[in-house]
Design a protein around this nucleic acid. Structure first.
Lengths: 188, 188
DNA sequence: ACCTGAACACCGTTCAAGT
DNA sequence: ACCTGAACACCGTTCAAGT
């Protein structure tokens, strides 16, 4: 006779790296990075904190790396039709939204030594430029400049930097778009 | 007769917010942000951790805010002679160096809600542009774009993003300068 | 005024044990 | 194979006490 799994095991999906990362992201987005603890993450997954180590042997380090990979790895569509400037503008708009949606992981994106995530992203930008006929050297600079701008601007937005004591609120959308045109328009 | 301060009190400078911030920055620069704890900071200052709370009542929060203020608040020289493009280029070069020197605080700069530090910096950039004859609206966009670029690029550098599997190491200095020209050159 | 010592409620992680 | 429970060495912070 086959052993019955416990009631607990029945009514919940089995633990997996993917489910762990998703639950972690939900905590970070909802409560902030500081409140992401292994114990709380375990609670959210209805499991003891120590169970997480079975899927992420490197523990919290690996968890944070996973969050960065999940958020920062969003390459541009290198197969897209249309002018490369439009392709890059569309990518930048999406990427900014993505970073702001998960603003809590921004500090991790910014300093975690986890090359893979940003590497594929920056490579896709270079590829879009290259296909658009931009010389290799210029493409490398432009790809980096663009990614740097988007990340930096998202960081400024996330912090809500107010630069005038005046009444009118900063229109971040318009400002981002204008700066984006400045950067993309500067590539030649 | 005047009471003698203890031997301890004689051979060390009295605690102050400034000394605390400096010691904290030394720990972050030397060992990384994760190793900055109140107890270790106390050790470095030859004091019990709890003594720090007397100078920073808001505790570690206030300490981190102080680090951000110390690192990120570096306005451009609004009184400088010469073309505004040169002034901004010089500021950006210095600011990048500053951020990379204290790369450990970058994650704090990026997300801490501490308007003051970056606000004065961005205001100085706007002022340089305004004095250079750039229209108000353009100046606001350009100031933000420039600061965003410098922070974002520094973040990419700090992470050491390698974008080609090739042998030749990325020349970050050249790349930063090229992107900087792209951004500053785009302002008109 | 300034600092200390003990205490409290939390962390991340290990390790042996359960099923 | 996958998860648990107890334990360890650390956190940030409070609070009463010392000088």
């Amino acid at each position: 006779m086959v052993r019955q799994p416990s009631i607990n095991a029945q009514h919940r999906a089995p633990l997996s790296t993917e489910r762990i990362i998703e639950a972690a992201l939900r905590i970070v987005d909802g409560q902030g990075l500081a409140r992401l603890t292994m114990r709380r993450l375990g609670d959210a997954l209805e499991v003891e904190a120590m169970a997480i180590y079975h899927h992420l042997p490197r523990g919290k380090e690996q968890l944070l790396d996973g969050l960065v990979a999940h958020v920062a790895s969003a390459p541009a569509d290198t197969a897209a039709q249309g002018a490369w400037r439009d392709v890059l503008r569309a990518w930048a708009t999406d990427y900014r939204t993505r970073l702001l949606t998960h603003a809590g992981v921004l500090p991790l994106v910014v300093t975690r030594r986890n090359p893979a995530a940003l590497t594929t992203t920056v490579a896709s930008l270079r590829e879009v430029l290259r296909r658009g006929g931009v010389p290799e050297d210029t493409a490398a600079v432009a790809a980096h400049t663009l990614l740097g701008y988007v990340i930096g601007h998202a960081a400024l937005e996330a912090r809500g930097t107010v630069e005038d004591g005046a009444d009118r609120a900063t229109d971040w959308n318009a400002r981002f778009a204008a700066g984006l045109d400045l950067v993309i328009g500067g590539v030649r």
